[in-house]
Design a protein around this nucleic acid. Structure first.
Length: 637
RNA sequence: GCCCAGAUAGCUCAGUUGGCAGAGCACCCCCUUGGUAAGGGGGAGGUCGCCGGUUCAAAUCCGGUUCUGGGCUCCA
């Protein structure tokens, strides 16, 4: 695909940066330097650790190169010539590998500007002087070819625009985005905290944040009742054997918390003087009975003989649950089911724990303990399509109620080359086809992405961007032919025979933590009245009006509203300013006129001064706004 | 986990070549009693993330560590 003019500019900026870097550090080894959605980068390998002052130095050198008005020249060469050019420039460390990536039937080209020459397909601007507005932004580590096992290079990020005004506007917009960041707003509006002593990635929901979460849970619970779901509750832990049956342990052990070992079992292995490796091996081991059971159900050697140990060498323990499905499966399996009962839909706000790498934790959007608005549907194969459509409809209701329209839909398919997926190919094909069909009913465009499936089945994900452009998966709907086999689930069909149900996993929000994080940014802290932690603030103009204000406060509370009274002896302007900064949707100004007429002067955060209403009229209006979960209506400009 | 940068009052931040710990906002008290984004004065608030080292003396220099931020990797 040819580059857009902006990509060309940024790509050229990255070459100009590399030119500058080689002038300063001639020994630098270059890897690649492409344009990105928001700018460009170049990955380089040099011994010296780059710092912010080095960025200034590189920028200064880049400006000189821009002023030199170097032409960008393309030269097509043979593969042999290409190797010679790379070697003559001492860039064989990474560039020879990059050259080898170019397919045999493709042309090999180099681009030169001034003294710099780089293996490059193009394209570029014609002269370096085109680069009028650029800025180097940050230094980061990046593995060569994105593989942890490869050496880590230093990546320099920058951005460039056709004009200085556009660059300034972009930088300004980035600054403004920071004001919407859920981590900043979470602190300012006291929505949540993360305490070092409690642990990284563990969210403490403060009273204000808890109100938002509770309102969201109430909202979705109402929808679930309408759609025939049953609410269940299950504990936060489960025995290791459960996850050996489901297949979660030990295959995903690196992304789970270490198991909790029972005291007696721990004492026993200590008494036996077991090494750490032996303790781990015993944790992962299974009885011959379990191995035989799982292998018989899956029809292949799912659990290999090397994991089987005699019963006295098994070490039992509990796991913090990484998923809710095994618990819900046990509820389904606890009694026989007729085809007439299906679908069974079990819903729970279930808290799960995952060991995310420390460098990946991020506010509320990537955490180690989170609560999914989870449900598992057990249905017949014939019902899969309709249930999938029902699940997607639910996600759409949720997103549209909140005014979140800027999302993309992704169908995660299996990567045919990977072995991490369980279950047989025929079921996978059926499930993937069902997802595709269901997604078509959404009426939005979707992308199919191989390799993005869950290990047990394909999924339909709703992906949304945060303020700095990072994508997060929220709602998800997943088809699963695998766990029903593992747990030998069945229902009695019309033919009086046992049949295998199909499971659907779905979570419209995904997780309460991530969803709230994204929601805070979506609203920029300006929540609709039904979600706002504080819906109304009463602002008496002087202390003399406090009695009327207190009576009104009690009245609002009796009506079920979340309301406070500002009794500070400040002037009205100061009280309004405070309420605005706290993003309270409605403030009621109370002066003598209002007290005399049992009225209030309404100021809304979305629309400003709305004039005087009777207290009755205001309360009726606000209660409707809350009950209908209305979005804030901004004043027309 | 890896690379880079940070951590000072509840919040935002200043703190020079090592020499008594600072400001604004928020909070409390007093004056002020007001009409749609900051009235005035006073007070309280700190083990400078934590542990160790150098020094007569460390917020400041050195080492380690924890956490945070931006990337990379990962994300059932």
């Amino acid at each position: 695909m040819p580059m857009s003019p902006l990509e060309e500019l940024r790509h050229s900026a990255s070459h100009i940066m590399a030119t500058a870097i080689l002038r300063i550090w001639p020994d630098a080894k270059l890897d690649i330097g492409p344009p990105t959605d928001t700018g460009f980068y170049y990955d380089i390998d040099i011994d010296q650790k780059l710092t912010a002052t080095d960025l200034v130095m590189i920028e200064t050198e880049m400006r000189k190169i821009v002023d030199e008005n170097q032409p960008f020249l393309r030269k097509e060469v043979s593969r042999e010539e290409a190797v010679e050019i790379i070697k003559s420039r001492g860039q064989e460390r990474y560039k020879l590998g990059r050259l080898a990536d170019i397919p045999a039937d493709e042309k090999i080209s180099f681009y030169s500007n001034g003294e710099f020459t780089d293996l490059c397909a193009g394209s570029h601007v014609r002269y370096s002087s085109k680069l009028k507005a650029f800025k180097l932004l940050s230094i980061a580590g990046a593995y060569h070819r994105g593989d942890e096992k490869n050496p880590q290079l230093q990546r320099i990020y920058g951005t460039a625009f056709p004009t200085k005004d556009e660059l300034a506007a972009y930088l300004e917009q980035q600054e403004q985005a920071k004001a919407r960041d859920h981590r900043k707003l979470g602190k300012d509006l006291k929505l949540f905290v993360i305490d070092e002593e409690v642990g990284q990635g563990l969210i403490l929901w403060t009273p204000h944040g808890s109100i938002i979460r509770q309102e969201l849970q109430n909202f979705i619970s109402e929808e679930l009742r309408k759609q025939g779901y049953s609410q269940v509750f299950t504990p936060h832990i489960g025995k290791l054997e459960l996850y050996k049956t489901s297949g979660h342990f030990p295959y995903y052990k690196e992304s789970q918390f270490t198991p909790v070992i029972e005291n007696e079992s721990l004492a026993k292995v200590l008494a036996e003087g077991c090494s750490c490796a032996e303790v781990y091996a015993r944790l992962e081991a299974v009885s011959s009975h379990l191995a035989a059971q799982v292998n018989a159900r899956t029809g292949k050697e799912t659990i290999t003989p090397d994991r089987v140990r005699p019963n006295d060498q098994l070490l039992d323990g509990f796991m913090l649950k990484p998923m809710n499905c095994p618990h819900h499966i046990k509820i389904f399996a606890s009694q026989p089911h007729s085809y007439r009962d299906l679908p069974v839909r079990l819903a729970e706000f279930g808290t799960v724990y995952r060991w995310e790498q420390s460098g990946e934790l991020n506010g509320m959007t990537r955490v180690r303990g989170f609560t999914q608005d989870d449900a598992h549907l057990f249905c017949t194969e014939d019902q899969v399509a309709a249930e999938l459509i029902g699940c997607l409809a639910l996600v759409k209701i949720v997103l549209s109620t909140l005014g979140m329209t800027d999302y993309r839909v992704r169908i995660g398919l299996r990567d045919p080359d990977s072995k991490k997926y369980t279950g047989d190919a025929a079921n996978w094909d059926k499930a993937e086809a069902a997802c595709r069909e269901a997604a078509k009913t959404l009426g939005v465009t979707f992308a199919e992405e191989p390799g993005q499936a869950a290990f047990y089945g394909p999924k339909i994900d709703f992906v949304i961007k945060d303020v700095i452009g990072r994508e997060w998966q929220l709602g998800t709907v997943q088809v699963d032919y695998n766990l029903p086999v593992r747990f030998d689930l069945s229902y009695i069909g019309a033919d009086n025979q046992a049949h295998r149900p199909v499971m659907i996993h779905r979570a419209p929000f995904g997780s309460m933590e991530r969803f709230c994080g994204v929601l805070i940014e979506h609203f920029g802290g300006d929540f609709p009245a039904w979600l706002a932690p504080e819906q109304v603030r009463l602002l008496p103009i002087s202390d003399k009006l406090n009695d009327y204000a207190r009576a009104l406060l009690d009245r609002c509370k009796a009506e079920g509203l979340r309301v406070t009274l500002d009794e500070h002896s400040d002037k009205l302007g100061a009280k309004i300013r405070r309420a605005e900064l706290d993003k309270v949707p409605y403030t009621l100004v109370i002066g003598q006129k209002e007290a005399d007429a049992a009225s209030v002067s309404v100021r809304s955060r979305a629309r400003g001064d709305e004039g005087v209403l009777t207290a009755d009229a205001f309360l009726a209006r606000l209660k409707t706004e809350v009950a209908t979960r209305a979005l804030p209506v901004k004043k027309k400009a």
